[in-house]
């Protein structure tokens, strides 16, 4: 065993990269669920974003355009879900699952011509002297823009939900859509906007996977990341800060267990492989253990169908 081979700074840096796709998808889903909608199609929107972003980046040679297209693609797909569930009032669970299946198949179809193609790389911002600070520079100031964007989004979503009037309205819609409707708020429109935001975030997370983290296109490449994001939102009891914690924990343990294996730690490999799931769920369950407060935090109208006539 050679634990000295593991460099904590390098590890911290790679956990931020590993966690970013899940973080982006989860923070988007948090907003969706706060508005009272349960969209189980995160995986489908992520993979759609992954291929749309990849295809556009390859065709135009511009990764920034690729990321924008991925957000548009994810949002467009989520609006299919939005129209089905909000306007036509279909079952949210079934429609979300269908969205995932559709996204996986649809992305495989578009992706036919992009297997084995190398995407253009997004230039990293040069933070100059900051990146040269020992340890901290490697951990905090050596990343690409999307990693910082993910962090900024967490702060923005937290501040939006907590301090702004539109955030309060969004939460009101999620808590009691009938009351919000009676107050004159456009429940369906607000929810559609939240769903589109969630789709854009999931699409961005998917594109980060195909354009930066892997970077290439392979069918089914999200490999369950969307489901992890969904689980993190619930276990984080719908709080932005805890979503960040959950995503970093999951990404961190996932990277750490690979490093521990490479270093030859004498722990059964099966246990190490399962550890990201176990640790993330355990920690989030423990910090959310205060049942009363956690239940208070769950949007009361989550998953319920709304119609203005009721």
């Amino acid at each position: 065993m050679d634990l000295g081979a593991i460099n904590p700074a390098v590890l911290a840096a790679s956990l931020m990269v590993a966690a970013t796709p899940i973080l982006l998808a989860a923070i988007g889903e948090l907003v969706v669920e706060k508005s009272g909608v349960l969209n189980l199609g995160v995986e489908g929107m992520m993979i759609t974003g992954a291929i749309v972003g990849f295809a556009i980046a390859v065709e135009t040679g511009n990764p920034a355009l690729g990321f924008l297209a991925a957000m548009a693609g994810g949002a467009a797909l989520s609006l299919v879900f939005g129209i089905l569930t909000q306007v036509l009032m279909s079952n949210q669970v079934a429609t979300g699952l269908a969205l995932t299946l559709f996204g996986l198949g649809f992305s495989a179809l578009i992706g036919q011509g992009y297997v084995g193609v190398k995407p253009p790389a997004l230039a990293k911002p040069d933070l100059g002297p900051l990146a040269d600070i020992p340890v901290l520079g490697r951990v905090l100031f050596s990343h690409d823009l999307i990693v910082y964007l993910g962090l900024a989004l967490v702060v923005a979503v937290w501040a939006f939900l907590r301090f702004t009037r539109p955030g309060l309205i969004l939460r009101a819609v999620g808590e009691n859509h009938d009351a919000a409707h009676a107050l004159g708020y456009k429940v369906v429109r607000i929810r559609l906007a939240a769903i589109a935001f969630g789709g854009a975030c999931a699409g961005l997370g998917g594109a980060y996977l195909s354009l930066m983290r892997v970077p290439q296109w392979t069918e089914g490449m999200t490999a369950g990341a969307g489901w992890i994001a969904l689980a993190i939102v619930v276990f984080a009891s719908w709080r932005a800060g805890r979503v960040l914690l959950g995503a970093y924990l999951f990404g961190g343990v996932a990277v750490l267990q690979l490093n521990l294996q490479a270093a030859g730690l004498a722990v059964p490999v099966e246990l190490l492989s399962a550890s990201p799931y176990l640790v993330t769920i355990l920690v989030l369950v423990i910090i959310s253990a205060d049942r009363g407060r956690a239940a208070l935090n769950a949007p009361a109208s989550l998953g319920r169908v709304f119609h203005a006539s009721s």
Partner: peptide, 20 residues
């Protein structure tokens, strides 16, 4: 513990490279 998971394979390769 997978035949096919590009993200995990990339992470594994990165972990190995970081360890020399």
């Amino acid at each position: 513990y997978t035949w096919f998971d590009p993200a995990k394979e990339a992470d594994a390769a990165t972990a190995l490279i970081e360890q020399g």
